[in-house]
Computed example of a mutant assay.
Amino acid sequence: MLVVLSGGGTAGHINPALALADELRARGCDVRFAGTPQGVEARLVAEAGIPFTPFEAAGFNRNHPLTLPKAVAKIQRSTGRAKAWLAELGADVVVGFGGYVCIPVGRAAEKLGVPVVVHEQNSVMGMANKYLAKRAAAVCLTYEHAAGALDEGVRSRVTVTGNPVRKSVFDATREDGRARFGVPEDARLLLVTGGSLGARHLNQAVCALKDELLAAGDVHVIHVTGPKELDAVAGQLALTPAEEKRWHLFGYTDRMGEAMAAADAIVSRAGATSLAEISARAIPALLVPFPFATEDHQTTNARAYVEAGCAYMLADADVEGPEFARLVRSLLDDAGVRERMAAAARAQKTADAAAKLADVVMGAAR
């Protein structure tokens, strides 16, 4: 079976696709990927060893209507190219994960009679996925209430699979993670991350807690600032050599799976991929949604997770207030809170998401 995956724009679209690719290849499927030549997907897919074919695609600026004809023309050209490519491959099914590039690839599949499956990672449907969902063979969601944006006739084709997480996130062990970062087994470890680009406001709030956190001799912090924030955060923290042994500061790490495996608790944004990985590892969490995400979807993502008992949530505007410090202390100091959150996270069965999605994709192809 030959499966074509498509997505672009952010790692949040690509990582679930790569998790599905791992599962499909384990089942003997041939997997190809269609993305944009300049997007992050070109690098990530190549690193995963999956054949990659680029197609130009772009959105338009609603404030500048003249950008629309150019975007439409680009999609039309790429649709023709994608149609010839899919026909040559003999694709059995196309899976779209979001991003404008999915539109020409999905439309080309429709013209050839190749079934299309859509996967939406967030609680709010993206434009490309919403467009393709109208005629898709199946629509897979992370959050059930995302179906509310779909026409009634489409909802009969919806399956809630969850958001797939790459095998590398599961493979890391607590022991390996703690050895990697030099954290003792009996230490309490707080992981702080603002996502791939960092989060300035969140970084500043955590830095303000430095003295309080390090006053407990068994607390360690792995703080991933985002590449552009590293110098500013290092200056604000002004760590002494002794403090650097317990406050592990990084602009970026490609060992996030090991960092998560080592952590007792996490402070994080609420992007779809971050939440899926936190859930898969069952890490007690304080979520601070990015307030400027489209339709505030990070808050919607986080709310469902919090209501399930898996995490705390605090608005970005409140991180410099006393409630932020209180919730961080609760995560670190109260083992009962951590145990309840971890149990609730395991009940979400995020670990099954890639297999569930693969079942839908292979069923659509047949």
Rank of each mutant, 00 (worst) to 15 (best):
G28I: 05
V45C: 04
K74H: 08
V31Y: 05
L66Y: 10
N61A: 12
R32S: 04
T79G: 07
R25S: 08
A82H: 09
A71V: 05
G80V: 01
A87K: 15
R81E: 14
G49F: 04
W85T: 00
P51I: 00
G80N: 10
A87C: 03
A26V: 01
T53N: 07
R25Y: 03
A57N: 04
F60T: 00
G28V: 06
A71Y: 01
A26I: 06
F52R: 01
F33L: 00
K83R: 13
A73N: 00
G49P: 01
V45S: 04
F55G: 08
E47S: 15
G39L: 13
P69T: 03
A48L: 09
I50L: 12
H64R: 15
P51C: 08
R25V: 05
A42D: 10
E41T: 07
F60W: 10
A34W: 08
P69K: 13
E41F: 11
A26D: 15
T79Y: 06
A82L: 08
V40Y: 10
A46P: 08
Q38H: 13
A57R: 03
A34V: 07
E41R: 05
N63T: 07
N63I: 06
I50D: 07
G28M: 02
A73T: 03
L86W: 03
G35L: 04
T36R: 02
R77P: 12
P69H: 08
V72S: 12
R43V: 13
E41W: 07
A26Q: 14
V72G: 02
R81F: 03
A82P: 05
A46M: 13
G35D: 09
